[in-house]
Every structure is written in structure tokens, then in C-alpha cells.
């Protein structure tokens, strides 16, 4: 009765299939690598940051509250670096949130299908341009522009304003694209309902679609902020070298990421104080973005629940 098949078992009991088990284990390990990455990050950053904080010159309190970062005189206060990170991020988000959201509303609610089909992928393509290119743009175009508008004696050659502006332009397509996704995910039936009640296009867009997409939009904004805080090359090229505690966007000031890049750009000798300090700053940066990531994931999960 077997017509060419191998002899079949009589019973239907489970058979151990070694091949399947091996594959299962291998695939599990592939998935588990990501956990190792996280452990690696936490361990590596933690260990060297620990070495840093154990140094007699350094203590955690001064690190968090000190207003100057000058390794050569043993001052390790992260505030100047942190403030300029905040400053560039704030400038960037002031550009990216309103423009990105407005563009998303235009694309999802007003633009013709054809226009959207062209603009959306273009935006995504632009969002994929390497950030060093944006850095080049900041330094060679936006900075001279700012200097010619506000005066070369007011605007320094390296300044946080230019870096922040360009960062905003970098993040704009990201925010626009994700917001557009969540706006167009709002079911058509909702729009129909509102139109059927005699709402205008604007009312439908602002009062029905926007609130329904709010969680996706907030997630996009948080993602944008995370991106801005972690953004490195624009600030490394355009924001200036040297920590500087200032909120003046026309002055140069190094951000956390800019500092890490500058310090590690030279051949860094292991276990020097500079080497260890980038781990401490990195840890700080990692924790900030981790918290933001977790918040945005919470929001996204909540948003899924509403629609399914």
C-alpha cells in the first residue's frame, strides 16, 4: 500500500525530528542575539562608566549638576553638553512638528492620490539621506545664510541654531511620513460619518481624523525627539567643538553626541579619562532614548488596541 513512500509508522505518536529541533534552536538563538546586544550595551556602557565615576576626579553628583566640562582641569559636569543637546533638539522639533504634521494632513486629507503617490516616497527617500550630507548642508549653506541675515558678528561660524534648523529639516520627512501613515489608517467610514453630518473638510481633518490618529502622531513626535537627541553628524559638523553652557543659538556649543565623536575621532588610548568619559555620556544618552522609546511603544500599543 505504500507505492514508493517509505514505510509509514503504524501509530500516530509524536516522532522526534532532530532536524526540526536543531532549526528551532538555531532560530531561537538568532532572535536571542538581540538580547545580547542590549546586555552588551548596558554592560559595556555601565562598566566603563563605572570606571569613570570611580576616578577620584569624578563624582556622580558633579557629573549631573556641574556646569562646565573641562577634562584638563578635572571638571566633568554634563550640563553644557546636555543643554546644547536640548537646544538643538528643541529648535529641530519646532521646525519638524508643525511642518511635518501640516504636511501629513495635507498629504492624507487634501492631496490627490497622484500627488501623494509621488510626494510620499520622495519624502521617505529624503529621510534616508545620510545625516553627514545634512551636516554638509548646515555648514555650507544654512550657516552662511544665518550669518548674512543676522550678521556675521552675531552668528558664529559654528552654531547650534544652524545645526538645529537642519536637524529639523532632517526629521521633518520622518515625522510627516509616520503621521501620514497614521492619518490614512483612520478608517474611511469615520470620515464618511463626519461628512454625512455636514462637516467641512477641515472639520473632518482636524476634529475627527486627527484625534483618531493622535497616538500614532505622538509616537511619531517622540521618535523625532529621540532621533534629534541621538543625531550626531549634523552637530559634529556644524554646531561647534568645545562644551559651552549657553542657550544662545548663534553660539557654538558641543552636544553630547558631538563630544563623543570629537573625543573618539583621534586615536583614543584605552582607559584614559577621555575614553571612559565617552562611556558615561553614552550611558546617559542611552538611558534618555530608552525611556523615550518605551513611552512611544506604550502609546503605539494603546493605539493598536483601539482599532482591533
Amino acid at each position: 500500500m505504500n507505492y514508493g513512500y517509505p514505510i509509514r509508522n503504524k501509530g500516530l505518536q509524536k516522532k522526534i525530528k532532530p532536524g526540526e529541533t536543531v532549526i528551532h534552536v538555531l532560530l531561537f538563538l538568532a532572535g536571542f542575539i538581540s538580547i545580547f546586544t542590549t546586555i552588551g550595551i548596558v554592560f559595556v556602557l555601565g562598566k566603563d562608566a563605572w570606571l569613570f565615576f570611580r576616578l577620584p576626579e569624578v563624582n556622580l553628583w558633579d557629573f549631573l549638576t556641574g556646569t562646565s566640562w573641562q577634562p584638563h582641569i578635572n571638571k566633568f559636569g554634563i550640563l553644557p553638553l546636555f543643554t546644547s543637546t536640548l537646544l538643538t533638539t528643541a529648535i529641530a522639533m519646532t521646525i519638524a512638528i508643525p511642518l511635518g504634521l501640516a504636511a501629513a494632513i495635507y498629504l492624507s486629507e487634501y492631496a490627490s492620490q497622484k500627488a501623494r503617490k509621488i510626494i510620499k516616497p520622495t519624502l521617505e527617500l529624503l529621510a534616508g539621506i545620510p545625516t553627514i550630507v545634512y551636516g554638509y548642508f548646515a555648514l555650507t549653506m544654512v550657516t552662511p545664510l544665518l550669518r548674512s541675515i543676522f550678521g556675521a558678528n552675531i552668528v558664529e561660524i559654528y552654531n547650534t541654531g544652524s545645526a538645529g534648523l537642519v536637524m529639523g529639516i532632517l526629521i521633518l520627512p520622518l515625522v510627516a511620513s509616520i503621521c501620514e501613515d497614521s492619518l490614512s489608517a483612520v478608517p474611511r467610514t469615520l470620515r464618511d460619518a463626519a461628512y454625512g453630518l455636514g462637516a467641512t473638510k477641515l472639520e473632518v481633518a482636524i476634529k475627527i481624523v486627527l484625534p483618531a490618529a493622535l497616538s500614532g502622531i505622538s509616537a511619531a513626535i517622540i521618535l523625532g525627539i529621540t532621533r534629534a537627541i541621538g543625531e550626531t553628524m549634523i552637530v559634529a559638523v556644524a554646531a561647534g567643538a568645545g562644551p559651552n553652557l549657553t542657550l544662545n543659538p548663534f553660539k557654538g556649543a558641543e552636544t553630547m553626541t558631538g563630544h563623543i565623536v570629537r573625543i573618539s575621532g583621534g586615536d583614543l588610548s584605552y582607559d584614559s579619562i577621555d575614553y571612559n568619559s565617552i562611556f558615561a555620556i553614552g550611558l546617559f544618552l542611552f538611558l534618555i532614548t530608552l525611556v523615550l522609546n518605551i513611552i512611544s511603544q506604550r502609546i503605539v500599543r494603546k493605539y493598536r488596541e483601539v482599532y482591533e
Binding site: 532572535g31 536571542f32 538581540s34 538580547i35 546586544t37 550595551i41 556602557l45 563623543i260 532614548t289 522609546n293
Partner: peptide, 27 residues
């Protein structure tokens, strides 16, 4: 465990690239 792996992957996607640089430097 699997939920942790998934969450972790989503988190890693949001970690600034420079942190990976530091990781690469150390490891």
C-alpha cells in the same frame, strides 16, 4: 521571553547609532 525579545528589538531600533559605535569600540 519572546515578548521581551520583541520589545527589545523594537527598542534597539531606536537606539542612537553612536551608541552602537561605542559598543563596537569596546567589544
Amino acid at each position: 521571553l519572546n515578548r521581551l525579545i520583541q520589545t527589545n528589538i523594537n527598542n534597539l531600533a531606536g537606539v542612537p547609532s553612536i551608541i552602537y559605535g561605542i559598543l563596537g569600540l569596546a567589544i
